[in-house]
Structure formats: C-alpha cells, structure tokens
Nucleic acid binder design. Structure first.
Lengths: 347, 347
DNA sequence: TTCTATTGGGACAAAAAACGTCCAGCTAGA
DNA sequence: TCTAGCTGGACGTTTTTTGTCCCAATAGAA
C-alpha cells in the first residue's frame, strides 16, 4: 500500500469496504455473466435491493451492461477489474496473510481469494479460476497430472480454458469411486480436465470396501497395475482437503470406519487418508489409488480448499504436507487459520 | 492522474467530491485553527450539521482534535494534508487549468487554488498563503518589493512567516492613500509585510485628487522623489487586480472620474490604472505611485486575485500584462475565465 | 411454434439515516 | 469576573435507503 492510498483511507474510511464490495460484485458478474439481479444477489450474498443499487451505479459508470438476458461486464469494466486487482488484494490485507500462512503451513506458496465461500457461493468459482490459472501454467513443463474428486475440484474443471489443446496432457484419477456423487468423483473430474484441455485421461474403477483378499487379487490385474505405475510417474497432484467427519458421512462409510475415524480424532481428509490435528495418519481407506509416498514424490502439489469451515482441516493436513505444495484458499479460511494458530500460541 | 485512481473513480464516483470536501474542511481547520463548528461552517460555506458530521469523522480518524478552544489539526492530519495535496489538485483538474490559463494569459506561471473565494471566504486565506509562499521564495534573490493595497494583499501579509528575519528586505508602498480603508492601503500593507519579515518599509503619503500644480510641486519634494527612485529599482511587484467600477466606488472617485471610467469601458484596475476589455489604459489616477513602465521593468510580478466575480477583470488586465507575471487565483475565477474565452472563440 | 424461467424496471410502504436547529454547560481569554 | 465561543446532547422533521412485491418482455428449452 503506497502512501497516497494510505492517506486516502484516512480521509475516507468508508471507501475501503465500499470498494471491496463493488469490486466483488463486478467480479462476480464477470464470472457468472450473463446473470440477473436476483440470481446475483443469492450468489453474492447480498439483498436484492443492495445489488440493485450497486449494479445501477455500475451501469451508470458503464462498467456493466444490462440486457434482457442479464448483466454483462463491458470492456471498461474488465479494465477496471484488472487495474484494481492488486490494489483490492493489498487493501484487504490478503498479500500479508499469504506470507503469514506460507510460514505457518511451511509450504512454498499460498494464494488467498477475497471473502468466504461458506457465505458467498461465488467465491468457489473464484477459487476455481485461480487454481485453474496456476495449473495451466504448470502444463508447459508437466504432463502427468493426478486429480482427486470433490466439488472444489469440479469448480476448477469448469474454469479451465487453455488457448490451444495439448494432446500430451494426461489426467489420472487419483482414486476409484469413493461412494461420492458421480459428478464429483475423481474419475469424472479427470475426464472433465481432459476434455477442457484436449488431453487424455485414465480412470480407476474399483468397488469400495473390498475384502482383503479381493483387494490383493485386484491389485494384480493389469488395468489396475498400470494405474499404480502411472501414480509413480505423476508430476503434479491436484487435490482438495475435506473435513474428516463430513467426508466419512458423504462416503457412506461403515460404522466400523466411522468409529476408527472418530476415535482417532481425525480432522482432515485428502486422497482417502484421514489425518488428526497433528497431521498424523489416523485411518486410510483401503482401496486402490495414489499413495501418500507417491504424492510426496510429485514436483508440485496443488491443494485447493476454501471456506471458514475448512480451516481446521487445512491446518491439520498441512502439519505434514509436502513442501512443494501450493495452497489455494479464501479469506474466510485464511482468517480462521490465523485466528486458530494465534489462540494456540497464547496457550 | 495515474491509472489506479482512474479505476478507483470509475468504481466510486462519489469519492471524488467527498475527498475534495473533506480535504477542504481539513485544510480550512488547519489555516484557521483553533476554530469552532459554527465559525467553520460559515467560513467553509457548509451547514453546521454537515461540518459536524465531517469533523466528527475527522476526529475519529485522529486527523483533528477538539478542545474547548476549538478544533485543531493533529500531526497525522498535517501529514494527510501534505500527501493528498497534489492528488486533490490533479483530481479537480487544477493542474490542467493552470496550463491552459498560462497559454491564454500569456504569462510565465499560474497557480490555482481550489473552490471559489466568492462563495467560501476561507479560500482567500488559501490564496494568501500560496502567494506568501511564492513571495518568500523570491526573498532570497530579491530585496526591493513594491506592494499595492487591497484585501487580497492584506490576506498575503497575514500568511507571511519567514524562518529568520531578513533586515535587507525593503517593502515599498506602490501608491499613496487612494481613499481606501486604512487597513487595506498600500502603506499599511507595506508596513505589515515588513513587520512579518523583519525588513523595512517605505510609505508614500500624498492627498488624493491634487490640482495639477500642486501635484507638480509635490513631485519635487525630496521625500517623494526618493520614492520615485525606489520604484525604478524595484525587483518584485506584488499587486491585486480589481473590478473597475467597484474600485471607483470604493475610492469615492469624483463624478468626473467615474464618467471617464465608465465611458472608456473600463473593466479592470491595477496600481491605479484602469484597463478596458482589450487591456488598453482607459484612465489613470493622477497621483504619485509606481508607473506601469516601472512595473514592466521588475524581474518578477506577482498578481493575486480570486473569485468568479474577478474573472472579467483578470482577463482584461492580462491582455497587456508583463510576461514575467505570476498569477495566483482560485478555481472560481479560473473556470469563469476559461468559460469566457471559450465563448469568445465560438463567436 | 409454444411454454417456462428469468430478466430489468416500476412502485411503494416501512425503516433508517441525515438534517436543521436548538440548548446546556464548560472554558479560555479579555 | 465576565463574556464570547466552544463542544456535546437532544429531538422533531425531512430525505434516503431498504425490503418486497408485481409486471411486461424476452431468451432459450421443448
């Protein structure tokens, strides 16, 4: 923050919030366009009246256009969005928080997006877009990419948009069906990534909850074995981080599993591994899929998770996460993580 | 104006006015401190409520302090004032206008201060302060300074504040008593300048409206002659510009004089000379005092006049003003001058 | 083509904020 | 000691903002 805007804020303290709010609205319109007043008010977490007031202003400023199909951002609007990007980040203190989190979580990079995806659904799209941009930059040097499932991963796939298709890209489903919603399964996500980028994908289909013998047998199957080899060659891993209990429920885990997860004090989940508050592995779903050791061998790992509700899980997972991990998260999660660590320090 | 603030203004159009308003209030407090709510509202041209709202905010921001004696600017406030100075000027388009006026009036420099002194009394103080600063810079190289009378000149004297007294400075009253209010006579002003700077002053006392013979006789008197010689050695001239008719009335001019002034189409007045709209001399008060030729010989001339009502007079005087003149004026006058010249061009 | 979901704009009462305008009590300086 | 000028509090009135409908138009699906 330069001296000028510092002085500006002294003289106009209301400016800060106002600017952030309008910027966020403009950005959301940009991502969801064409979008109407009502839909926007839901997705941006504001009342219809407020959205209306602000969009009327944005239109007067010729930053957006209103057609019968909905509101769209003009070229001028895009320009403003671009010019103020860094400024809004600085002003919200996001740059500062990124540095702090980087130190606390002991990883190479942290990217924080404004607001809280728990409160404002559109923030998920922002996270997806940012992760997509980061991932696209990796495509140049890395071609073998393992992906997990989850709604966050789905958000990334929606935002991928590569300039020219790259047939060399290979997306590998990091896990088999884990009882999740089909749309959010790793297999589906891998396919989506491939479709968006022009690459190919490899899926892993294995029924859940196999007996030990059946599992051992399957592992000898060539189709499955091939996947295991691919995991060894993985350059990049893209994954979400879940809340342990939430994931257990979503996966319709057996009572036995749930008991293990609960008694072990699991907090977070990633690639089918459950971690406690100190990052120790409490339980792992016995199924084929990428192994933690294989993840650690990857040159870059992209962890994506946002929302205040994910704060504990993120903190837990990163106790023992690989150094070359890049975390993409949001302000809600970031603030809570900082709050939690501060509390711990005080004790 | 850089791209960032440009984008900021696109997103927050109300910012511009708000910032200007608060800046002006803060600046006025700075100049008139300690000052109370009511006095400030009068001098700044705003309602008491509005002033109260803004000053409450400024206090919360710790830019001003409120004591029983009145409001004062804190060191933080001063800092803000300093940091935003250039920015507010740019934003109001004053820098642009200065360049335009410089070309139109064909002089070396123009300084425009925000707002209109006709509407807001405090602006006169701003003009005075700015002129004082410019004048002080000249003191280093120039020691013989001729000054005229008028309320604007009085405002300058109030704002003079030199770091260390300079006994070498000599202030010369450019004219004798011209029937004006004693406080605003050139003699009084010269004395005030001298007092503030530690210099000396020379006054010229001559009754108004002398007969031709008496006048000739007086000019031979040593005291008077000495003044005439001083005018020849003058380095710097500081003067105001008046509206012709207004000045004639204020000086209780004779009917004969008024007739000459009116029939000649006089618009402006300076050093006792009356000029028509083309800058031609229409009439001059026959009295001792600095001659136009002597003014033209000075190395720097500081002309000070503000307020929309002075626009025509300024335009008139500068038709034939010396090149090395620096004009200090306000936004009100500047805008009107630009408006008038635009109208003329269209015809 | 028709139907349906969604759009921007209009409208309006209720709630909230801003405003104009006093007064009381205090304090610094004449 | 007195007075002018200051701040802070108060309050009815006006203005603005807010929440919440409805409506005609339209785009896109069927």
């Amino acid at each position: 923050m330069d001296a000028l805007s510092d002085a500006q804020q002294k003289l106009m303290p209301e400016m800060s919030e106002l600017l952030k709010k309008r910027y966020q609205i403009l950005q959301t319109i940009n991502l969801e366009q064409p979008i109407g007043r009502r839909t926007l008010s839901e997705v941006a977490g504001a009342t219809e009246r407020e959205i209306r007031k602000e969009t009327d202003l944005l239109r007067n400023q010729q930053l957006i256009e209103m057609k019968t199909a909905g509101m769209t951002v003009t070229s001028q609007g895009l320009e403003v969005l671009e010019k103020l990007k860094v400024f809004v980040r600085e002003m919200s203190g996001l740059t500062d928080m990124e540095k702090q989190l980087q130190t606390i979580l002991k990883i190479s990079k942290v990217v924080i997006l404004p607001q809280d995806s728990d409160e404002i659904p559109a923030v998920k799209t922002h996270i997806g877009k940012e992760a997509a941009r980061l991932l696209e930059a990796l495509f140049i040097r890395h071609k073998k990419i393992a992906v997990t499932g989850g709604s966050t991963m789905a958000a990334i796939s929606k935002e991928l948009s590569i300039s020219k298709p790259d047939r060399a890209l290979q997306f590998i489903a990091a896990r088999g069906g884990l009882g999740e919603d089909v749309l959010h399964q790793a297999n589906t996500i891998a396919a989506a990534f491939a479709e968006k980028t022009g690459g190919s994908f490899k899926t892993l289909y294995l029924p859940d909850h196999l007996s030990a013998e059946a599992f051992a047998m399957m592992m000898k199957e060539p189709v499955i074995k091939e996947m295991m080899d691919l995991y060894d060659q993985t350059d990049v891993v893209v994954h979400g981080i879940g809340n342990a209990e939430e994931m257990a429920v979503r996966r319709h885990s057996s009572l036995e599993e749930v008991e293990k997860i609960r008694s072990g004090g699991a907090v977070s989940e990633a690639f089918g591994y459950y971690f406690d508050k100190d990052g120790k592995i409490v339980y792992r779903i016995r199924t084929a899929g990428i192994q933690l050791e294989q993840v650690q061998k990857a040159s870059t790992i992209l962890a994506v998770a946002g929302g205040g509700s994910k704060a504990r899980a993120i903190l837990s997972y990163f106790k023992n996460a690989p150094k070359p991990t890049v975390l993409v998260t949001d302000e809600g999660a970031a603030r809570k993580i900082l709050g939690l660590t501060k509390k711990l320090e005080e004790l």
